[in-house]
Design a protein around this nucleic acid. Sequence first.
DNA 1: CGTTTTTGACCTGCGC
DNA 2: GCGCAGGTCAAAAACG
Length: 236
Amino acid sequence: MGDEKLTGSTAEIDSYGWGFHWSGGGAGISAGEEDVLREFGWGPAAVPVGRGGRIGSETPKASASASASSSESEEASRSAGTASKVKMKEPKRIRQPRVAFLTKSEIDHLEDGYRWRKYGQKAVKNSPFPRSYYRCTNTKCMVKKRVERSSEDPMVVITTYEGQHCHHSISFSPKFGFTARDEAAFVARLSSSSPPPLMVAPASITQPSGRPGGAGEGLLGDVVTSTMWYKVELIF
DNA sequence: CGTTTTTGACCTGCGC
DNA sequence: GCGCAGGTCAAAAACG
Ligand SMILES: [Zn+2]
């Protein structure tokens, strides 16, 4: 496996067809800063998202091609023919990759103010670190988040957001002074009509103290979150 | 007890 | 046609 492809990660992302344009330090970005890249990949069903796994209908029934599978057991359920036998009623191939966010950071977890449930983790080729898949806990919210670490820069984390939230975020609560209007502006800025294909925010923010220490984690954690969001607000 | 995390299995698209 | 890569879901475990 080891190939000579150093820019494997970038290449993979580009192959998605989203049209990602990663500027490796082109703007003079160095560790210690956060870059927020906005990309509008409104493509005609170009993103392979949707029928990744089983498509509803848990009807067990015999598997189409039993072949040498004497042990169907409970696993047979998922082996249903699904698409083969039961047609998908109508072309539900509606991918909706509206906006993709690329956030570069040095910290492991980037709190975005939303509750996410991890639904999968896979190892990426050319990368010693795996990629984590998160989904919004909201039932009506189909927003998905993808978090991956850089292959050569373990301190750099690439977070990709897909879709838009249909509810308010906890960070926007009045507690911090944010109101619905603020959030609206925040989202509006993101879903702009035709903004620049690539935007780099020169955020020269420093992290609140190293982060290790280990002092009051609970109280400090809350403060850190607020600070971080403040950062984002400034960037946008 | 409820929720979330973790792991494996499995499906789909593309390449060769 | 098969294999690879990537992506998702489901069940169980771990955690609060
Ligand atoms: Zn949401």
